[in-house]
């Protein structure tokens, strides 16, 4: 469905997106993960046609998206990070306006609005000005506005940023329902748990490059059956670096002044590892053990946490 090949976008000396390639299949929720500034929004803007890439191709159902004009762009729905609504309008007026821009009118738009209001749970407050809505309600309406014209591909750019856990939970439910109705979704986030819950396939991007791409299982293979051991405290750097020589299968992932990160197979016992740390003169302030997850994949690939 969506095919991106060798996409590159530069801002003067900064390469925001560096020869990335991936494919989103019909009907799937594809996760696009990365920390802030990784290049996610730039990629989305290139897909939308709002930014012209320096090189590479983007096709949607074999139609070129770069310079494809309004006709191709209308196949897309975008839900930006920020709430993009007119606060003085009510939900119906907002949806009427956005639908109108895509040529919807008459009974078609009315029934579409009703469907979306039902889907997002806003039907009973549809005639109230948006300025009176809670953050979660605004987010849901924001999503409805992006879907008013029944796009073939919906781009969700961190739609849950800044909302409370309950509203976030509702939002994820809504996204699942949308996907169940057959809409293809490219879901951008820096919350690994959201990606784990929603996405069948995903790509991890950092500094404009794709670090990992595949199904959740395939990506988790990167860390395998390894746990991540993060130690914070006082230690001798050279001793910390030589520790993997003393323990088979222990891998040093990153080391900083007061923090060191190792990967340790599940079969190895934590007690043995701890004993070795103490023998090596570690004064441990904190030890965190992370089970294999997308988060740990990101840490293994980049040496830092996703939200750093």
């Amino acid at each position: 469905m969506l095919q991106i090949t060798d996409l590159t976008k530069k801002y003067k000396d900064l390469t925001a997106v560096d020869r990335i390639s991936f494919q989103v299949n019909q009907g799937e929720i594809f996760g696009f993960l990365g920390p802030n500034g990784a290049g996610k929004t730039t990629t989305i803007n290139c897909i939308c046609g709002l930014l012209k890439p320096d090189s590479g191709t983007i096709t949607l159902d074999d139609q070129d998206m770069i310079g494809g004009g309004n006709r191709v762009r209308q196949m897309l729905g975008v839900v930006p990070q920020e709430v993009a609504l007119y606060e003085e309008f009510n939900a119906i007026e907002n949806l009427q306006f956005w639908g109108g821009l895509y040529g919807l009118k008459g009974a078609a738009i009315k029934s579409r609005i009703q469907k979306l209001l039902d889907l997002t749970g806003l039907a009973d407050r549809a005639k109230e000005a948006v300025k009176n809505y809670s953050g979660g309600m605004k987010r849901r309406l924001n999503m409805a506005a992006g879907m008013i014209h029944e796009p073939r591909l919906l781009l969700l750019d961190e739609p849950t940023v800044g909302i409370d856990p309950q509203a976030r939970h509702q939002m994820l439910d809504t996204i699942r329902q949308i996907a169940a109705q057959g809409t293809t979704i490219l879901y951008t986030t820096h919350y690994m748990d959201e990606a784990e819950q929603l996405c069948s396939r995903l790509a991890i991007i950092d500094h404009g490059r794709i670090l990992a791409l595949g199904t959740q299982q395939e990506i988790q293979q990167i860390v395998g059956e390894n746990r991540l051991m993060k130690i914070t405290g006082t230690f001798d750097k050279s001793r910390a670096e030589s520790l993997p020589d003393k323990m088979k299968n222990l891998v040093l992932l990153s080391i900083q002044e007061n923090e060191v990160l190792y990967s340790l197979p599940m079969k190895e016992t934590t007690g043995t590892f701890l004993e070795m740390l103490i023998k090596s003169g570690f004064e441990i302030d904190n030890l965190s053990i992370r089970e294999p997850s997308l988060d740990s994949v990101f840490i293994k690939l980049t040496g830092r946490e996703l939200r750093d």
Binding site: C48, L50, N70, L76, V78, E82, A84, L85, W98, A145
Partner: peptide, 12 residues
């Protein structure tokens, strides 16, 4: 108001 991008996308 962040409504610019969405409008540009729909209208050019």
């Amino acid at each position: 108001n962040h409504t610019l991008t969405r409008q540009l996308l729909a209208t050019g």
